[in-house]
Simulated scan of single mutants.
Amino acid sequence: MIAPANPNKAVILVSGGLDSATTLAIAKSQGYACYALSFDYGQRHRVELQAARQITNQLGVIEHKFIQLNLDNIGGSALTDMRIEVPITGITHQIPITYVPARNTIFLALALGWAEVLSAYDLFMGVNAVDYSGYPDCRPEFIMAFEKMANLATKAGVEGHPFKIHTPLINLKKTQIIQAGLRLGIDYSLTISCYQANSTGYACGVCDACRLRAEGFRVLGIADPTRYLTQSL
């Protein structure tokens, strides 16, 4: 059964990382009633899911749904295939092996389905096209194309209730993202950005995600609350 319409509802993708936590805080600051969605998709570690739950507990959401997928069944990424090592030599100009095939397309499709059930016509995603690893599904072109598809493919869309995909971080540097989150009161010690954090939540300090995060805090002159196994390079 489709829930009654409420223009203030929004579905927010929450991974447990710094960017998605900031996106959730921004959505809340804009007055949305937030419904958080996280995925156990066969990723290299599950610590980020614990972080996602801590973040939504701190910031407050109406509901936090976890969906289990098995993207590790198709592999093709260092994040879903334990036989592929996570790169630790630094960010390159090529799409890295940590890219998960079609991940954001799949995540947004499921978020869209839940949003339609909730009559929530706003979706928030913490993708970034500035300080990032070069993933094609983090670009504005992808978001615009998916939004167009969403409004062609859903009952809500064709009946005059268009969906809007909000990407408030897409043109921000990591320093700007951190500053925005701190202004909104985020406890970044709850977040996990690392691609290969261990079971106790310690980050590797040398993967692309760790490097980008650590550099953002370093430039700002703010202590990074992440617990690192090794010093970021």
Rank of each mutant, 00 (worst) to 15 (best):
A3Q: 12
N8D: 13
A25S: 09
G31A: 04
C34I: 01
Y35T: 09
Y35A: 05
F39C: 09
F39W: 08
Y41T: 06
G42K: 01
G42Q: 01
R44K: 05
H45S: 11
E48N: 05
Q50R: 08
N57C: 05
Q58D: 13
Q58R: 07
L59P: 09
G60T: 08
F66E: 14
I67G: 04
I67Q: 04
Q68A: 15
D72W: 00
G76W: 00
G90R: 12
Q94Y: 03
Q94G: 08
T98G: 08
Y99G: 11
Y99H: 15
G113S: 13
V117G: 11
Y121H: 15
L123D: 06
L123Q: 04
D131Q: 08
Y132Q: 15
R139K: 09
F142W: 11
M144Q: 13
A145R: 07
F146W: 02
L152S: 12
V158W: 12
V158D: 05
H161K: 15
P168Q: 00
L169K: 01
I170V: 12
I170W: 00
I170T: 04
L172E: 05
K173T: 07
K174H: 12
K174W: 03
K174T: 09
I178Y: 00
G181S: 05
G185L: 06
I186Y: 01
D187N: 13
I192V: 14
I192Q: 06
S193P: 07
S193M: 06
N198Q: 06
Y202L: 12
Y202R: 10
A203G: 06
C204G: 04
C207A: 04
A209R: 00
R213L: 09
V219G: 02
P225N: 10
T226H: 04
T226S: 15
L229M: 12
T230D: 08
Q231L: 10
L233S: 11
